[in-house]
C-alpha cells in the first residue's frame, strides 16, 4: 500500500466504573498522500477518538497506526512528540490557541518547540519570516500582534491553521474545523484548505458534520458504532485513492 498513514484494526475502550464503552471496534483505514479525507458520523461515534489516535495524541488499546512505514507502538514518547511537531498539524473545533501568546507567537510555537534556546538566536529571523508569510496566507497580515482573545472565531481558526502549517507538516488533522463558525466563514476555511491541498500537496484528515465540506473531499469515511461504514468516492477527483473500506 502506498498509504502515507494507515490504521490497522484499531480498538479503543473507555471504562466508566464497571461499565465498558467500546468506542472503536476494529477500525482499519488508510490516508493517501495529498488527499483530503473526510470522516463523518453521528455524535459520539468515535470520530475525535480516531483522529487523536491517528495523530499520535492518543493511543489505541489494540491495533497499530503506521506513518510512512513507522509503527507508532515502536516509537518512544519523545519520538511521537517529534512526529507531531514535524509531520503533523492539528486544527480543533475550539481553536485551542495559547491565550498568553500573541497571534504571531502562536504561529511560531511549533518552531520554538523544534529549536534549542541558542539555536533560536540564529533561526529566529527565518521563523519570523515564515510566520508572517503564513499569516498573510490565511489573511491575518494585520493581526500579528493581537492576542487570540481579541480575534473573531473565523480569524482564530485561520490562525490555528497557520500554526498547524508552521513546520511544513505532511498531514493536517482537523476536528470539526468549522463547527463553531457561520456558513460564510466556514466557506472561507474550506477555500483555504482546498488551496493548501492543491498548491502545496498537503494531506488533510477532517472530521466534520458539514455536508458541503464533505462534498469537496476526495474521500469520505462514515463511522457508525465504532466501525467504518462505507466509502464514497468523489467521481470527478483523484482516481488513485480507491482505498479499502475496513
Amino acid at each position: 500500500m502506498s498509504d502515507l498513514l494507515a490504521a490497522e484494526n484499531l480498538h479503543k475502550r473507555y471504562f466508566d466504573g464497571s461499565s465498558e464503552l467500546h468506542v472503536l471496534r476494529g477500525v482499519s483505514m488508510g490516508v493517501g498522500a495529498g488527499e483530503i479525507l473526510v470522516i463523518m458520523g453521528p455524535s459520539g461515534a468515535g470520530k475525535s477518538t480516531l483522529l487523536h489516535i491517528l495523530g499520535a495524541l492518543d493511543t489505541a488499546d489494540e491495533g497499530e497506526v503506521t506513518y510512512d512505514g513507522l509503527g507508532f507502538s515502536s516509537l518512544s514518547g519523545s519520538m511521537l512528540a517529534g512526529l507531531r511537531n514535524h509531520h503533523f498539524g492539528f486544527v480543533f473545533q475550539f481553536f485551542h490557541l495559547l491565550p498568553d501568546l500573541r497571534a504571531i507567537e502562536n504561529v511560531m510555537l511549533p518552531a520554538m518547540i523544534d529549536t534549542g534556546v541558542f539555536a533560536w538566536l540564529g533561526r529566529k529571523r527565518a521563523v519570523l519570516e515564515r510566520a508572517k508569510e503564513l499569516m498573510e496566507l490565511v489573511g491575518l497580515g494585520d493581526r500579528m500582534r493581537h492576542k487570540p482573545g481579541k480575534l473573531s472565531g473565523g480569524e482564530r481558526q485561520r490562525l490555528a491553521i497557520a500554526r498547524a502549517l508552521m513546520n511544513r507538516p505532511r498531514i493536517v488533522f482537523c476536528d470539526e474545523p468549522t463547527g463553531n463558525l457561520d456558513t460564510a466563514t466556514s466557506n472561507d476555511i474550506f477555500e483555504l484548505i482546498h488551496t493548501l491541498n492543491q498548491d502545496e500537496g498537503l494531506t488533510f484528515v477532517i472530521v466534520t458534520h458539514n455536508k458541503q465540506l464533505a462534498e469537496r473531499a476526495d474521500r469520505v469515511l462514515h463511522i457508525i458504532d465504532g466501525q467504518i461504514d462505507g466509502i464514497q468516492l468523489e467521481p470527478a477527483q483523484d482516481p488513485q485513492s480507491d482505498e479499502e473500506i475496513h
Binding site: G55, L57, G77, S78, A81, G82, L83, R84, N85, H86, F90, H96, L97, L98, P99, D100, L109, P110, I113, D114, R163, N167
Partner: peptide, 16 residues
C-alpha cells in the same frame, strides 16, 4: 491545563 494539551499537540514533550 488546556495550554498543556495544546503544547503537546504541537509536539511538546513530557520533559519540555
Amino acid at each position: 491545563t488546556k495550554d498543556i494539551g495544546i503544547i503537546k499537540s504541537c509536539g511538546g514533550t513530557t520533559f519540555g
